[in-house]
Design a protein around this nucleic acid. Structure first.
Lengths: 339, 339
DNA sequence: CTGTTAGCGCGTTCAA
DNA sequence: TTGAACGCGCTAACAG
């Protein structure tokens, strides 16, 4: 029933060579005679032997895998198209280097706990506050990490955009169009963030909004805010509630996903209210009605972060600590002039 | 510079206890005295020690990870929303069991090569023909596998829908609406498939189309076919070409992604031609114009396949070999009566 | 150049 | 509570 595993030892015995010779046959055939290599490989085939990759990696002190720490539960993380595009970018780089990409869900609702057990050569996180619990584990395990959309104000390698500037641009575009009754729907803040956390993406964007408003002698008190939203469903829910007690002329969302939900509500109520999103989803599934948005490339963030992580793994001392990627205003059909 | 790794040995020496005692302190504190456990854990904290997960897994003969073999290159695989939803389903089950999910890109353009090096406890594939190369590796490594949308005619555990029936239904709906000039855009066949392959999803669906056509005294010769497409871009390209040399009244696509591309072309040319898709993407981003489609749940396939894989890993002898999931016709606004 | 011996990596677990 | 063996492959050092 339980066919015992064939090991390097079995091949050695069967062929009369040593384990070393067998290992060489697989890894550096030039190190032994051609005849020996052939004999060994043949025996391996007959006995159905393949070197066990885990034993191999263990011996070599590596994993051949990058890890992506999911910032929230799987349902939320992987359901988010922006996160998916970041993952795609990471995976492309892994593919190029012959690595695997390991998705690591929170363990017992703890990202730190998950990091403790992750069998990977390095980690990438997204929009996550790297608190001291996680830090401690990283240092104990000598695990390099790159943070995407994370706090860029310390000693951790990070990839992000200028969220404050991007948000300021977003708000300014709205104000320039003449809108003054504005409803803003933020993203939820890092679910696992501790009080000792530095500035999050959400906070930076709010600061950008504040600056844009200030230029028009306005403040947060002059705009409508309600609960945060990250999915289309949540966006729709929040927008619907807002419309029940106020009448904004424009919605500002911190994600396209939420913006799409808002659009649905407006459509179903036949309301002609402007909407501007954030992200610029690349899926191209909704070209008919194009969302006006602030574009940033999730895939590019994934690519960059993985490249940086590989440099850290390779021990490159000159790896840049902060990487800023560009963002742009993308004109669509959903942000209209307010007469 | 190179801080040496702290090992269980260091803790043993520092505390005067044995490696065994240290191991127990972490895994079964009850096996040693309370005092010893405390002392050991305290020393571990001081020296910043954490048991190395790879060594641990190696010793325990497991990985705590499921593997997902990407059927094509990353760009194609992870760009596909259907595949993403399958991955989400798998990941949810992994999360529940405290496992990781490892995405495995083809290595040197070979899925078999990738499987050879995968450090996982079991594999899931999607729409892939498990040829004898892969089979051989699986058996050598004693790796259990579950195939989603794969060949369900052998000894491999599989999860799928009745693709022939679903396709027959799809074509019948079109015919019932009165369409007779029909353009069909298939999916590309498994890129890595060998000639010895059993029936693929594409072949099964075509057989379903054939049966539906037959009921109307028609055959494949009566419908328009061109190149296959799996993405929106490809769908648009193929549809555009078809429209250049013929004038169908309805497009049948084997995926919603391709169907969306077709819709874009029709919109840009202001053509009122029917479209029916396949998959039923759940992202809810395009509710305004709802694609008529054959719905199947990618996430459900992911959930089921992972559950089955865990049963195999657990050595459950009664794990069902074939699992069929339901599909339904989902009415939208894009399949119209042909007058 | 070809081949071997011995020890390593790091925790787990059996027998004492 | 512990010493020693184990899991499996890699590789430094050495001998012919």
């Amino acid at each position: 029933m339980k066919a015992k595993r064939i090991t390097i030892q079995d091949i050695a015995e069967k062929t009369g060579y040593s384990k070393t010779a067998v290992s060489f046959a697989f890894n550096s055939p030039s190190r032994i005679s051609k005849k020996a290599a052939e004999k060994i490989l043949k025996a391996a085939k007959e006995l159905d032997y393949i070197p066990d990759p885990m034993a191999r990696n263990f011996s070599l002190g590596r994993h051949m895998a990058l890890g992506f720490l999911l910032p929230q539960r799987v349902e939320a993380s992987l359901g988010n198209p922006y996160i998916q595009s970041v993952i795609s970018g990471i995976a492309e780089v892994c593919q190029k280097r012959g690595y695997m990409l390991t998705l690591i869900p929170p363990l017992h609702s703890s990202v730190a706990e998950a990091a403790k057990n992750a069998t990977v050569d390095g980690l990438i996180t997204l929009g996550l506050i790297i608190d001291k619990d996680i830090r401690s584990i990283l240092s104990r395990r000598h695990l390099p990490i790159v943070s995407v959309d994370g706090s860029a104000d310390d000693d951790i390698h990070s990839v992000s955009i200028d969220d404050m500037g991007a948000a300021e641009l977003q708000m300014r575009k709205v104000l320039e169009k003449g809108h003054r009754k504005i409803a803003m729907i933020p993203l939820p803040d890092d679910a696992y963030a501790k009080p000792d956390a530095p500035a999050t993406v959400v906070q930076k964007r709010k600061e950008g909004y504040r600056k844009a408003l200030e230029a028009y002698s306005m403040s947060f008190d002059d705009i409508i805010t309600d609960a945060p939203a990250s999915t289309a469903e949540e966006g729709a829910t929040v927008a619907a509630r807002i419309l029940d007690y106020s009448n904004p002329t424009c919605f500002i969302a911190m994600s396209d996903a939420a913006a799409m939900g808002i659009l649905d509500v407006l459509e179903s109520r036949s309301l002609d209210i402007s909407v501007i999103g954030f992200d610029g989803l690349e899926d191209g599934l909704c070209k008919r009605k194009r969302l006006t948005t602030i574009y940033q490339s999730g895939k590019e963030k994934g690519l960059k972060s993985a490249e940086i992580l590989f440099r850290l793994i390779d021990g490159d001392e000159n790896t840049p600590l902060y990487t800023l990627l560009p963002y742009t205003f993308r004109e669509g059909t959903t942000l209209k002039e307010f007469r």
